[in-house]
Amino acid sequence: MWKAVASNALTLFIVVLLLAGGLVIWAKQKYAAPGPLETAICLRVEPGSTMAGVSRDLGGEGAVSHPLIFRLGARYAGKDAELKAGSFLLPAQSSMEEIVDLVTRAGRSTCGTDVNFRIGIASAELQVRTLDPATGRYEEVLAFDPRAGEVPEGYDALMAEPDLRYRVTLAEGVTSWQVVEELKQAAFLKGEIAELPAEGSLAPDSYEVTPGMDRGTLLVEMAERQSALLDRLWETRAEGLPLASKEEALVLASIVEKETGVPDERRRVASVFVNRLERGIRLQTDPTVIYGLTDGKAPLGRGIRQSELARQTPYNTYLIDGLPPTPIANPGRASIEATLNPETTDYLYFVADGTGGHAFAQTLDEHNRNVARWRKIEAGQGGN
């Protein structure tokens, strides 16, 4: 009898173990399987929240089908105590495992309102956008120039929202003076700027910042990023360039940056200046003349006068040989790459062609014909 009881007990125990093992396997599969979300959502995790509370919210949102498995899975993975506060974008069909990773991963929110202070060539703009979870795209809510002094209606309410993300974005070709002056208008930054960064030393890029970040610290990050980029690209340069140093490359890249905004032209424009340097021909480029007149403090806003073309400055490449002493703006990656790997051409000249691009020429006669064509286009535009 006792043998039978023991046998039955052992059988029952084995069955229980098998059922428990099967349940664990089933739970693991559910934890890693695609979830029920049909469209992406933003999940808000308040400070002080617990994984149990988040699991209930997820269940209510229809993001998980088994909140208990979500909690147990997070605990088993050792992440139940690593919950981060913020707003998180949960893609459609996110598994419970993926959601746990999203809400416990170190870093900032991935959903919500984006405040981007954009510093452009002619002006700055504070742009506020919100993320549409369904499309994964940011939609502009409002934008304005902080210097204008008029804050749009609704701005204060937007700034009171949780989990705002702040960025500062530099356009290619801005000058260091422009960057410094515009950063002073960014009310979410603090601190005085001790000195003007060297021209060309700041990387045009997008920088994620935190409210109260020191302006000087941000400028250091911009300079470090540009220096690292220049170091990397210098190592990939074409052989035989008439550039003795990375500093000279940065000077020429800034000229290429200011001469064309057409991506496909950059390497061709760079080839013109490389050819001129190799043949000892003066660069004769208007952006350098303008920099000598303005010190990079503002766009000239008009054409260059003949008297200004004849004015002696260290940047007047109609009068000086070779490169000017410093960059004339902060060039972006594409212009630096183009400068260090220009096209192989025989072009020595270029002029605007009326389409936003340029007409290139090998000889002065050909160039003069292109210039005459451009003059006619200019005259026609002026008559409209």
Score class of each variant (00 low, 15 high):
residue 12 L to Y: 04
residue 13 F to N: 12
residue 13 F to K: 03
residue 13 F to W: 11
residue 15 V to M: 14
residue 15 V to K: 06
residue 16 V to I: 15
residue 17 L to E: 07
residue 18 L to T: 02
residue 19 L to E: 04
residue 21 G to M: 07
residue 21 G to D: 02
residue 21 G to F: 04
residue 21 G to N: 02
residue 22 G to W: 01
residue 22 G to N: 09
residue 24 V to I: 12
residue 24 V to G: 01
residue 25 I to L: 15
residue 25 I to F: 13
residue 26 W to S: 14
residue 26 W to K: 12
residue 27 A to G: 04
residue 27 A to Q: 06
residue 28 K to L: 12
residue 29 Q to C: 07
residue 30 K to S: 13
residue 33 A to N: 00
residue 34 P to L: 03
residue 35 G to D: 02
residue 35 G to P: 07
residue 36 P to F: 05
residue 37 L to F: 01
residue 39 T to Q: 14
residue 39 T to V: 13
residue 40 A to P: 02
residue 40 A to N: 05
residue 40 A to E: 01
residue 41 I to M: 04
residue 42 C to S: 08
residue 42 C to E: 02
residue 43 L to D: 03
residue 44 R to P: 02
residue 46 E to P: 00
residue 47 P to S: 00
residue 49 S to Q: 12
residue 49 S to H: 09
residue 49 S to G: 12
residue 53 G to K: 07
residue 54 V to Q: 01
residue 54 V to I: 07
residue 54 V to M: 09
residue 55 S to Q: 10
residue 56 R to C: 09
residue 57 D to H: 03
residue 61 E to N: 08
residue 62 G to A: 09
residue 64 V to R: 04
residue 64 V to S: 03
residue 65 S to G: 13
residue 65 S to C: 06
residue 66 H to I: 02
residue 66 H to L: 13
residue 67 P to F: 10
residue 70 F to K: 06
residue 70 F to I: 03
residue 71 R to H: 05
residue 73 G to E: 01
residue 73 G to M: 00
residue 73 G to H: 00
residue 74 A to K: 05
residue 75 R to P: 02
residue 75 R to H: 11
residue 76 Y to W: 14
residue 76 Y to F: 10
residue 77 A to N: 10
residue 78 G to F: 02
residue 79 K to L: 15
residue 80 D to S: 15
residue 80 D to Q: 14
residue 81 A to E: 15
residue 81 A to R: 15
residue 81 A to Y: 06
residue 81 A to D: 15
residue 82 E to K: 14
residue 82 E to I: 05
residue 83 L to D: 05
residue 83 L to S: 00
residue 83 L to I: 06
residue 84 K to F: 06
residue 84 K to D: 10
residue 85 A to K: 09
residue 85 A to W: 03
residue 86 G to C: 08
residue 87 S to W: 06
residue 88 F to Y: 11
residue 88 F to W: 07
residue 89 L to H: 13
residue 89 L to G: 02
residue 91 P to Q: 07
residue 91 P to S: 12
residue 91 P to N: 11
residue 92 A to R: 10
residue 92 A to D: 10
residue 93 Q to N: 11
residue 93 Q to H: 13
residue 94 S to K: 03
residue 94 S to I: 07
residue 96 M to N: 08
residue 96 M to I: 09
residue 97 E to N: 13
residue 98 E to L: 05
residue 98 E to P: 00
residue 99 I to R: 01
residue 100 V to W: 04
residue 100 V to D: 06
residue 101 D to E: 13
residue 101 D to I: 05
residue 102 L to F: 06
residue 103 V to Y: 00
residue 105 R to T: 11
residue 106 A to C: 07
residue 107 G to P: 00
residue 108 R to W: 03
residue 111 C to K: 03
residue 111 C to A: 11
residue 112 G to D: 10
residue 113 T to N: 07
residue 114 D to N: 15
residue 115 V to A: 11
residue 116 N to T: 14
residue 116 N to V: 12
residue 117 F to L: 14
residue 117 F to I: 10
residue 118 R to L: 12
residue 119 I to T: 07
residue 119 I to C: 05
residue 120 G to L: 08
residue 120 G to A: 14
residue 121 I to D: 09
residue 121 I to H: 09
